[in-house]
Amino acid sequence: MPLVKLQKVTRRYRLGQTSVTAVEDVDIEIDRGEFVALWGPSGSGKSTLCNLVGCIDLPSSGSVEVNGRNVADLSDDALSEHRNLSVGFVFQQFNLVPVLTALENVMLPLNLRGVAAREARAHAIDLLAELGIADFMAHRPDKLSGGQRQRVAIARALVGKPALVIADEPTANLDSGNALRIVSLMGQLNKSHGTTFIFATHDQRLLDRVSRRILLADGRVVEDTTQAGAR
């Protein structure tokens, strides 16, 4: 059974009086452990697809199945639980909670899950150490560089050991050096943790390292290719 299965998925938005189709008739299956990039020009539907796969948005038609369950059948609470247990998000703007330290930000998904504070803290520290930013765990986001913030965001996405990590333009706000480090870090984590990664990107450095590339244009899948020896 694929981890994620999209069948005839269409997503339309209303913008004032007009209806905009962001994604149309998309069929995709993604298996566990894949390292997938959704790429294409701006407005091609990459982020919308990420949102649908990550269950923070629902399709206008078609079905999104995660682990064989149609997400449209889940209540809002069940979707929240699913996101907390099975999905990790990495955002382009990092989206760290500004009043929490790096450590507290990483602990957040576990706090929401009800994991005991001591245990959550231990997990978060381990992960921050693995990502090489343990020294900055007491810092708040505004005291961290862009690369450090993105690592914290990655740690937060991974701390709950999700089956799937969705990263929307994770390198867009990073300089070249940091972008490369983040890309190779995610590659390593994909290998070591077996976590499925799905990126929305048009960063060539990232595209060169993924095992599968899905090209989107005008909300449709135009090309779905796998490349050996990536990461």
């Binding site: 929240s80 996101r83 998904p109 929401l112």
Partner: peptide
């Protein structure tokens, strides 16, 4: 608002 969106995407329920 963005922080609320982030928290919700991390699994915070509406009740939360």
């Amino acid at each position: 608002t963005r922080e609320i969106g982030t928290m919700r995407s991390l699994g915070l329920k509406r009740r939360g």
